[in-house]
Design a protein around this nucleic acid. Structure first.
Lengths: 251, 251
DNA sequence: AATTATGGTCTGTGATCACAGATCATAGTA
DNA sequence: TACTATGATCTGTGATCACAGACCATAATT
């Protein structure tokens, strides 16, 4: 289910297509926290009518990926640093478990596929293709999670990512400013470094080491968020901009 | 959010009301696994039009509380014993954590409220009021989870309950048959016994003991499901019956 | 000039309708 | 009698419309 967010979904229903497009767009950082989303706006930009968009938005509201405000509008949630930390705490548990379970089951073929995604991500970094980098990162993680033995787990992890991604995307460049220049340089290849360490653990057939790496990386980020706190969270504003959905075609 | 499923929701939107009614109905075992739910059927029985019901169903589909079948119908999911075990495994982690966190924060007032629910459940058992027993049980658990420090946790737990409750309700009487008569007698007051032990741990201000009790009880059930397996899961059929929504008034 | 009133616009909401696909009972046919 | 064909019915789906509330810019009034 979750990795399908970045695959072509072969459903005939317009509602499902809109739903998956919006999920992809949210995960890819296409929306900014606090940004308002409107039914008619999305409908016209996606070339469909209100109905499928309404249902998709309501579905995402149920998953807390979109927020229904008191004045009867929809917007992308703005997470406080406390909410970020809460979700990170759960991510450490759940993605740690999923990583360990996946490590116990990964076939050579699946490992090769992970390597392929890893290479794609390397190319995206080389080409300064941040969009491609983000998408490769998502596909890398969810390909792992989808291999875990607990079938209920990937969906929960995905729901956390959906809540968390827009604020995360907004946080990252701001977190960068709090790092030294040397650390910034390191951070640019950090994701890939993490993936390399994970792949090593997978190759070594060491599930607990794989889990430890995943947990450690998320814990590092948790500490950073905890340190920075809400010091810059107050300037999330209501965003409204013309959106280019060319990357998420409906047909 | 979650405990509100059993409170009066003061929203003006028909969609939200239908959504909460359906959640309550699902958690309370009102639907049987495999049972078909239809938009027009619910709309007429709830005295509203198709639109709010459509949106509510789509929301619940996104949470996997309702399943969209391949032949374009909606039905209550039928979970295999493996799916039950997967969810139970996550429940042990998540409800264990939530219980521990709640135990660290419970005020005396909240403890008193838990006692009150505990008493209600005792009366329901005495009166053979199974509906009241189930609802008291739900309120007892979610009142605890709602007190945990991690604000993202209760919603995840609720989503697991929504997936899990219909099949669980169907399982229980069948599991009973696999117990000895003496064990059956014990099982009738099992829920209350569990709650008593939990309340003791809460009163003793012992979070880790509270967590251990919660985990142990769920683990016991996990072992039972594992032992019984899918031996009787094949006779879940498509149910269709006239539903009495009198207990879930829309207005 | 400052305040109030007004009207247009944008929002979600609920209702209704036409339609296509699936299903099933019934009637027609071999 | 057994099989087939047909038509009624039920399903979700998508589109469209009217409506009320919020918002805002503009005009009228004090």
């Amino acid at each position: 289910m979750s990795v399908k967010a970045f695959q072509q979904v072969e459903t005939k229903s317009a509602h499902d297509q809109v739903y998956h497009i919006l999920k992809r767009a949210i995960l890819a950082g296409f929306f900014r926290p606090g940004e308002q989303v409107t039914i008619r706006g999305l409908a016209s930009q996606l070339g469909t009518s209100e109905m499928p968009v309404r249902e998709a938005i309501k579905s995402l509201v149920a998953q807390k990926a979109i927020e229904a405000t008191q004045d009867r509008k929809f917007r992308i949630p703005v997470l406080s640093s406390q909410q970020m930390k809460d979700i990170l705490e759960l991510r450490i548990m759940l993605e740690g478990l999923a990583t360990e379970e996946a490590a116990e089951r990964l076939t050579q073929e699946q490992l090769d596929h992970l390597h392929a995604i890893h290479e794609e991500m390397g190319e995206a970094i080389s080409n300064q293709d941040s969009q491609g980098m983000i998408e490769a990162n998502i596909r890398f993680h969810f390909f792992i999670y989808d291999q875990c033995s607990n079938q209920a787990l990937p969906a929960i992890i995905e729901s956390l990512w959906l809540q968390y991604s827009p604020t995360l995307t907004e946080y990252v460049p701001r977190l960068m400013k709090h790092l030294t220049h040397k650390d910034q340089q390191a951070a640019r290849i950090l994701d890939r470094e993490r993936h390399t360490r994970l792949l090593d653990a997978f190759k070594a057939r060491d599930p607990s080491r794989a889990r430890a790496h995943m947990e450690a990386d998320l814990s590092t980020f948790l500490r950073v968020v905890d340190k920075i706190g809400d010091s810059f969270a107050d300037d999330f504003e209501q965003h409204r901009s013309v959106r280019d959905y060319a990357k998420f075609p409906l047909h």
